[in-house]
Design a binder for these strands. Structure first.
Lengths: 347, 347
DNA sequence: TTAATGGTTGACAACGTTGACATGATAACG
DNA sequence: CGTTATCATGTCAACGTTGTCAACCATTAA
């Protein structure tokens, strides 16, 4: 293809087709009242000139066609999955995505985003935890005139501020704990307790709930605090094994990265998995297949969650109404692989 | 902060300050000939109204202030690091980043990007391997009128098509191999050979080169083909150990993920690291600290590489000249941690 | 035959900004 | 004092598109 000299405009197309540029605009926007003959001729000229409507001019005359994805999350896998989900949806609807990583100083995020909204670059924002838990930020963004969708942990939207895509960590924590209990485990450790972390709280609550349902009591010594990292997973496992001479028969790790660390540490201690100790993860991230054996885990459909959030913001941007009722929930599903089995004693 | 009714424009500021809107424009753009008194008053009014220049209108009148980052890479850590580096630079210079993941079908990428360039959304593109190796794509994008910067493996730019940020994998492969040789290793395995993968080729070449310099011959059986993944790292290690009764004393893994897989598998085979076998990685990714011991590796400054690529595209977009000479090279540096030591025999 | 209808099309302004140019005031110079 | 250069500011068109409204033509109803 030859180098282009200048980008063709709607007027160039109009001249070539012998119609007014307004008619071309009508064709481009698929408006009704254009005769078939004219429509065909215009389309032909558009192709001939390789004309692309100027996104910028369009945005100026109408509304922004871009949305922002704000993340403050050390987990690259999570971010990339979310990002890909959002982009996939954006592409389908002709929207563009602008990325905004941040360093958790929520105030600065607010200012920066306000600048982007104020400058008409973006019309909508998708927030993930922990940013999405910041109600002040949400309110602030709404007041700036942006559409906001939050991705949150919970069994229902916490308020009517803005639509929420929620993931039920309690039910999921319950499910996977129930699975371990049903296998016969009675001493199940919980790795990754973190009161400041919404998902961690939810999963722990589900863990507790499943025990209660079965009338099994929880040994508090088996609940270990830590970060959502591989390294922390190793350390927590070490702590767990050192402090509990009566070894737990199973470990519920709060995410796959912790679980991978737990598998690694357990092997270092010459424990076989799952024969000596069962280990389950959470999220179905790439980490879950970076262990031997592969992890039984909860499959959390991040891509779909993100796509669904994107679809929601876009619909908010298109309709002018508020649609506060359009929240949607996702339930992670148990994904059985090879890292959990019946405890030795019950065999 | 109260909900805003309508975004203030330059004219609102002008009215409030009692000057013409052109003067406000001058203040906003930091142009010279504005008296201090007026400048101060205008700035005051800008703050009072919380005015933000409309990015869209600006883009239309001048040139696009956005660039695209195109990736086709399964490695989330890499993508996120690059992305963060680019964004950090963009932010400094008031540019915006648009993300474009793709599924390696180069032709579609070209079309999509052409559409974005044609519609004036973006003025520049940053390409990473393997997309950046596709000269047809680069030429195509240049012909569309975009500025292009490629990130490539090599010791110098391969051509004058467009500026290149290049990472010298050969020198780096040489460096880390030389380190192992200098420790006394004579049987060093190479994991992750992949002729289709530019970086893999370069690192292997460096590996060979270091051996040649020392007059040490390479045992071809120690060069194992595979993917850049944890799982492949495990498999390659297993193959390596099975096929070589005379065990290598060190492993050079083509990246940290492979190395982590190697560490895991070596442990499964009851090998101590580094006492029984030294293992080094490449990239200094998060994987390099997700093993015990932490990996000696080559530190590849992805963030800085990306920031530098971004700075380059932006300068190309700003200057109208071509700047074909502005390529820049990076050399990964040896990062010594705990996974490599002298071989047992030489102790 | 005339008026009303409905489907196509075009003329023009507008979005918010910057660039080119014009104007007015002040300072510098002979 | 008159002329010119310099600085500060303003006026207006333009970027490429869409919204508003008017105009046109062909058909149908009265």
């Amino acid at each position: 293809m030859a180098p282009i000299t200048k980008k063709p405009t709607i007027k160039d197309v109009a001249k070539l087709a012998g119609v007014s540029f307004k008619t071309v605009s009508r064709v481009v926007n698929n408006e009704a009242s254009v005769s078939d003959a004219v429509r065909d001729k215009v389309n032909e000229c558009i192709n001939k000139l390789n004309y692309r409507p100027n996104h910028t001019a369009r945005t100026m005359r109408k509304a922004p066609f871009s949305l922002a994805f704000v993340y403050d999350n050390p987990n690259s896998n999570y971010v990339i999955q979310m990002q890909n989900g959002i982009i996939s949806q954006c592409r389908k609807q002709g929207f563009e995505l602008v990325i905004r990583p941040t360093d958790s100083k929520a105030e600065d995020v607010g200012k920066e985003l306000a600048a982007m909204i104020g400058s008409n670059q973006i019309g909508g924002v998708i927030l993930t935890p922990p940013l999405s838990e910041n109600r002040a930020l949400v309110t602030f963004l709404l007041n700036q005139g942006a559409k906001v969708v939050r991705i949150l942990s919970g069994s229902e939207p916490p308020d009517d501020l803005a639509p929420v895509i929620y993931v039920d960590d309690i039910a999921a924590g319950d499910d996977i704990t129930a699975y371990l209990l049903q296998l016969g485990h009675r001493r199940i450790a919980f790795l990754g307790h973190n009161p400041a972390h919404e998902s961690s709280r939810g999963r722990l609550q589900g863990y507790q709930q499943a025990h209660d349902k079965q009338g099994v009591s929880v040994d508090k010594n088996l609940i270990i605090e830590g970060e959502f990292t591989f390294e922390s997973g190793m350390k927590m496992t070490q702590t767990l094994l050192e402090n509990n001479p009566q070894r737990p028969t199973a470990i519920f790790a709060c995410n796959d990265e912790i679980a991978a660390g737990a598998v690694f540490m357990a092997r270092l201690q010459n424990l076989r998995i799952p024969e000596d100790i069962s280990i389950v993860g959470f999220e179905n991230s790439p980490f879950s297949v970076q262990t031997l054996p592969h992890l039984t885990t909860m499959d959390q459909p991040n891509f779909d969650i993100a796509a669904s959030a994107a679809a929601l913001v876009i619909s908010l941007m298109q309709e002018q109404k508020e649609m506060k009722t359009s929240s949607k929930g996702f339930n992670p599903k148990l994904l059985i692989r090879d890292s959990a089995t019946q405890p030795a004693t019950s065999k």
